[in-house]
Design a protein around this nucleic acid. Structure first.
Length: 474
RNA sequence: GGCGCCGUAGCCAAGUGGUAAGGCAGAGGUCUGCAAAACCUCGAUUCGUCGGUUCGAUUCCGACCGGCGCCUCCA
């Protein structure tokens, strides 16, 4: 094996692409902000979760080993949220019946893992849960107080951002201008309006409360990631990823916490994914303008079409989602699948013509190594398709690339059941065609179309496929 | 108000100081009994607007217009 190839990644902290130099050579440790498991994840969340997946796949393809940790936030959000549309009725009632936060978290964690798997996002090596790291969070908070980065008032501990000069570097904010005008009421106990909570004294209606040196309470919103990332990956690790909305305040706070305790740089590279937009606005749980991957599946889309769609855009830019766009990706994906089947069937791996494949492979590798340039990689897939490379070689190359793309191109197409009566119509049409009764044959084809069955005539006879039932147009 | 991102063909979306990837849609053709699928060919003299730098800018700088995001839980 050749040594691992260099990978360049865009670092939000420096706003530049940097060569990745793992703390432990050839072995990349990465931490990713995962879901808050009190609701379902939507496709915007999933797009962000694709980043560590694609990074792991890329690194492994290029000869590195990886260790991916993704946190599950199961603390702090279960007070009195309003219900989502489309939420499982059982869950609504479960909550109304005061089911435990643990039960809620377990349910949505499972749903998240299933949704991720549907998009062929490989599981992380570990999924630490915030609720299991309370002692570590208390420990970090204690150290921050000792080091003069935090102070306690009435059982609540605040981070003193004035004590950490680099605060604001990640997001470009400066502490003096921060929050100048927008905030409503400022907690009068804070020394600076931008100080954030490390530990919060428990209020009246809290479901989750833990004892602490400062009295009963629960951890602040940012400390969990400092605790879990350093507990599992050490106080120096390579990559931390999340959505662009996490840059401030979440990751800014995390840097202040982790570096405040250790006194040195903890994360080498901060990667942030662009948000998914729906009709020009951010897809968000709170706004209610989101799709679950299950919903798209129910509308008849191949869930991996969303993956295809996401791969066509740079992970860092916002992406305008529409079901029309998804339909295009769905079609393109199906097309590639059929190509692969044909090439495999053709099967000749004859060397002669396939001289371009080495060059294509090289370009593919350099594309993915360049800050995960999947749009370029996808363009190469098209170039490969149109190239003169021998079919067998095309098939081999595409299968190899799919280890990175994760489109599961060899997945057998799910056979949809024929609607009632359709089999008889198909049989009748076959007879009509045998008798060269084309008028009858065409009429039956129309009839099948109205049942949602597309019929294609081939030299080997008619082939049929149950069409996806799409909502809306067509 | 502060900070950050963006404005490229009908839609989605790459990209570069030297003259615009890719996908979907669309048009023509091959194939087909007819279709469909597939395959082949075609599309921005132009990259929000106006200036500036430059031999040359879509790419650099400035202004302006427009959109989005963060500053409150949020991928």
């Amino acid at each position: 094996m050749e040594p691992p190839a260099g990978v360049r990644l865009y670092n939000t902290l420096t706003r530049a692409k940097e060569e990745l130099h793992p703390v432990s050579a050839g072995n990349v440790g990465m931490y990713s902000c995962g879901p808050t498991v009190y609701r379902y994840v939507h496709i915007g969340n999933l797009r962000t979760f694709m980043i560590p997946d694609l990074l792991c796949r890329t690194l492994e393809y290029l000869g590195h080993r990886t260790r991916q940790v993704m946190n599950i936030t199961d603390v702090g959000h279960l007070t009195d949220d309003t219900f989502d549309r489309g939420e499982d009725k059982m869950l609504v009632s479960a909550r109304l019946e005061k089911k435990s936060p643990e039960e809620i978290a377990a349910f949505y964690t499972q749903a998240f893992r299933e949704d991720a798997a549907t998009l062929n996002i490989r599981p992380a090596a570990e999924y630490p849960r915030a609720s299991h790291y309370i002692p570590q969070m208390i420990e970090l908070t204690t150290k921050l107080i000792e080091k003069g980065h935090a102070y306690e008032v009435d059982g609540t501990v605040y981070y003193d951002i004035a004590s950490f000069p680099a605060y604001g570097r990640l997001s470009g904010n400066s502490t003096d201008k921060l929050l100048a005008g927008v905030r409503g009421e400022v907690d009068p106990r804070k020394r600076h309006p931008g100080d954030f909570t490390l530990w919060k004294a428990a209020g009246e209606h809290r479901l989750q409360v833990w004892p602490s040196p400062w009295g009963p309470g629960f951890p602040g919103w940012h400390i969990e990631c400092s605790a879990m990332s350093m507990s599992l990956l050490g106080d120096r690790f390579d990559v931390h990823s999340g959505g662009a909305d996490n840059i401030f305040p979440h990751h800014e706070a995390e840097i202040a916490q982790s570096e405040g305790v250790t006194g040195h740089r903890v994360v080498s590279c901060w990667m942030h994914g662009g948000l998914l937009l729906l009709a020009g606005s951010r897809m968000a749980k709170s706004a209610g303008n989101f799709f679950r991957i299950r919903e798209l599946e129910e509308q008849g889309f191949d869930p991996l079409a969303f993956r295809y769609l996401a791969l066509q855009a740079k992970y860092r830019t916002k992406l305008n989602f529409s079901t029309d766009g998804l339909a295009g990706a769905d079609r393109a994906l199906r097309n590639i699948r059929e190509h692969l089947i044909e090439w495999t069937r053709a099967g000749d791996v004859a060397a002669g013509e396939g001289t371009d494949d080495a060059a294509l492979e090289k370009r593919f590798r350099s594309a993915i190594a360049d800050d995960l340039d999947l749009p370029e990689a996808m363009a190469l897939v098209s170039e490969l398709t149109r190239s003169k490379v021998a079919p067998g070689v095309k098939a081999r190359l595409l299968r190899s690339w799919d280890r990175v793309l994760g489109l599961d191109l060899e997945r057998p197409e799910p056979r949809r059941a024929l609607p009632p009566g359709a089999a008889e119509v198909l049989a009748a049409r076959e007879k009509a065609r045998a008798a060269k009764d084309f008028a009858r044959s065409d009429q039956l084809r129309d009839e099948l179309a109205s049942l949602g069955i597309a019929v294609i005539d081939t030299p080997e006879g008619q082939r049929w496929r149950v069409q996806a039932v799409r909502q809306g147009s067509k």
